[in-house]
Design a protein around this nucleic acid. Structure first.
Length: 405
RNA sequence: GGGCAGGUAGCGAAGCGGUCAAACGCAUCAGACUGUAAAUCUGACGGCUUAUGCCUUCGGAGGUUCGAAUCCUUCCCUGCCCA
């Protein structure tokens, strides 16, 4: 029923950053084969930001591989911490989510995750189920199993401590809470990004404390965002969402810096070892225009999350707009209200929400960022064309078809 | 509980009675160049019917002053040291 140990390890090791400890993993797999029992592979999810992007896909894809090998995927929705509200770091005390909201987000997370995961051997659990039942005494007992010194080993704690920044006591509790998830579901393996390494390791210690066999931890590289600098995240707006419409997904991909072409191929697509090596070669000897590799990457991604036809169309549209400098085939239509005065263009820009303030509209016009039917508008007070409809372009890629009633 | 140092625009960080909507850097946006890449250059970067004009901002609330981000009072928040 299960592939052999070697076959399994071969697939599992692909693209991972670390497996700790590797021989324990081998042992667990051997035992799973012998007893014909799937391993429980855990992945924790944060329900406060339910929009999944390629960054999440890296670890989800790894989880999918475990499923394909016949193992059991367990998604833990961290609704408990979501309900408390996590004021850690810079983010001002995040309003706590209600139970309803966490459920809704959890559901949405699940739906998106199953664009990558198989729905057959998957389980989703909310951690409030067990964390919510713990008494204060239970928490103190749990807290007693770890020490401040060990907590401070975590990189970001060390740094913040040295820098004299605040660290809330509850922040020490989160790794422990996460560890309790592993205890509750008796995880065999826990996946996470490399930035999760510490938390995952705490899980091992705490499982041991509760008399369980420690989980094997498996970390995946962190995907750099489209800005080429920071970790991909929605709040930094440097992400490619797995639910992004084809055109957007294609466009965003083509806009990534060249250095990301290889890592993106490696971490977010299924291309074979051979193709990967080829890409690497082509990038280093410049035998292929990096743009073409990027186009291939973009097509691959759109095909994965949509389909080949969508990818073809997205590429066509992209070329149309940016290579031929033409306008999109379809664009949003804005019915023009009756306006008077010479500032109608500014009003139009704000009303259509293409800019956030009138000052911004003026600024854009002054800088040549606005055009009507391909003609740059330089005078903010120029009247709008009187024709029945015209095309407004704002910035590099915002188009609007304006029609008169 | 005591002492000290801080809280300035998305972030970092100047300013310490008028010339401050607030230097500078980063991020961002627009333009040029390109492969809508990178790098580079130019400009913008609180809001308003664009105006050598007005309005709202420098943790909160009061106060002193012709005038406050800058001085005083008080409150809140953060860090460090001592207990």
């Amino acid at each position: 029923m299960f592939p052999t140990v070697n076959e399994q390890m071969d697939l599992i090791k692909r693209g991972v950053s670390e497996i700790i400890p590797e021989d324990d993993l081998v042992r667990k797999i051997e035992r799973s084969i012998k007893s014909n029992k799937p391993l429980r592979v855990k992945l924790g999810c944060d329900p406060s930001r339910p929009d999944l992007h390629l960054g999440h896909s890296v670890v989800l894809r790894k989880l999918r591989q475990f499923q394909d090998l016949g193992h059991q995927a367990i998604l833990i929705i961290g609704d408990f911490t979501g309900m408390i509200g996590d004021p850690s770091g810079k983010s001002k005390t995040r309003p706590s989510l209600t139970l309803e909201e966490t459920r809704r987000n959890g559901q949405s997370y699940f739906e998106q995750a199953t664009r990558i995961l198989s729905t057959t051997n998957i389980r989703m659990q909310y951690n409030s189920e067990w964390l919510g039942k713990m008494s204060f005494a239970d928490v103190i007992v749990l807290a007693g199993k770890y020490t401040v010194a060990r907590m401070l080993e975590r990189d970001d704690f060390t740094e913040r401590y040295k820098a004299g920044e605040s660290i809330g006591i509850h922040e020490f509790l989160y790794p422990l809470a996460q560890a309790m998830d592993s205890v509750a579901i008796e995880a065999d393996i826990e996946l996470g990004g490399t930035d999760q390494k510490f938390n995952l390791l705490v899980g091992r210690d705490i499982q041991r404390e509760y008399g369980l066999e420690p989980q094997v931890i498996l970390t995946m590289p962190i995907l750099v965002g489209t800005d080429g600098a920071e970790k991909m995240s929605k709040s930094l707006d440097n992400y490619i969402g797995i639910s992004d419409p084809p055109k957007e997904m294609y466009g965003k991909t083509l806009r990534i810096p060249d250095e990301l072409i290889y890592p993106y191929f490696e971490l977010t697509t299924d291309v074979s070892h051979k193709e990967l090596a080829e890409v690497k070669q082509q990038l280093s000897d410049r035998s292929v225009n990096p743009r073409d590799l990027k186009r291939k990457l973009a097509r691959t991604l759109v095909t994965m999350y949509h389909n080949a036809e969508a990818a073809r169309k997205a590429e066509e549209e992209f070329d149309r707009i940016f290579v031929q400098k033409d306008v999109p085939v379809e664009m949003e239509v804005f019915p023009l209200q009756i306006q008077n005065g010479g500032t109608a263009l500014i009003s139009l820009l704000t009303e259509a929400q293409l800019v956030s303030s009138r000052s911004e509209a003026r600024r854009l016009i002054d800088q040549g960022g606005v055009s009507i039917d391909g003609e740059k508008v330089t005078d903010a007070n120029a009247p709008l064309p009187t024709k029945k409809e015209f095309i407004l372009k704002v910035g590099k890629r915002k188009f609007l078809k304006v029609v008169r009633p």
